[in-house]
Design a binder for these strands. Structure first.
Lengths: 118, 118
DNA sequence: AGAACATATACCCATATAGGAATATGTCAA
DNA sequence: TTGACATATTCCTATATGGGTATATGTTCT
């Protein structure tokens, strides 16, 4: 079997740096394809192809405006990624480190009580 | 050019569902390869290969223990993903929706004041 | 040393790329 | 209608993949 399709889910779609860049640009507001082409410094077909992938996983929506196609981000589709990564946040978050120390202290105190009971 | 290597960064490494599953399992505590093999119901070589990818992007660390190799998660490497996704959180978060409505209300009131000034 | 166990690596293959180039489709303007 | 503009699609190619299978490496036990 080969690697999963880029259109399989948001995880795969977003693995490509260009596509993340596109989403970053669209985060500032909707944009027509040509603006993206200029901002990315990428050939137009490549941009259209990236946009297709993003569309297929629901990360962007399109709107027709004259002969332009205006794209906008739909961050909702990123929620699964956010939810998954969040479970590992304690690995680096200062906040959780403090929580850990509090729990450790509670445990210490608990042990102390036990010792007193003996 | 082909797709970026799975070892290019955490984004690519984590695009594979099996590898996310491995990280989920390791989140509960370090595990030797064979335990992962059983828990995943996958062949041992495939697991070792997935672990290699995770190692190369720093998502897991290994420790030798007798003839076993015990893997543990290193969530730190997920921070870039967390940071990137966080910028889009307002797209789905209830919290931000309420913030939006508050801002909308403020704007309304401001407009009302302007009308009163005229 | 030899066997059993634990893990990693090598090799094969079908598949999906990402970018380049050419072209098709669709819309507006004269 | 014809041409210019905006975007999408098609075709090409080199490349990396994930699983299957066989095998190599390394460790412990007898």
């Amino acid at each position: 079997m080969a690697r999963a399709a880029t259109t399989a889910d948001a995880f795969n779609a977003v693995a490509e740096p260009r596509r993340r860049q596109i989403l970053d640009l669209l985060a500032g507001g909707e944009l027509p394809v040509n603006d993206l082409v200029e901002l990315l410094g990428l050939a137009q077909p490549q941009v259209s192809k990236h946009l297709r992938v993003l569309r297929e996983v629901g990360l962007v929506d399109v709107r027709d405006e004259g002969r332009q196609r205006v794209y906008r981000v739909n961050g909702q589709s990123l929620k699964p990624i956010h939810d998954w990564v969040k479970n590992f946040e304690q690995s680096w978050s200062q906040r959780f480190e403090r929580l850990d120390s509090v729990l450790a202290e509670l445990k210490e105190r608990e042990l102390g009580d036990e010792r007193n009971d003996e």
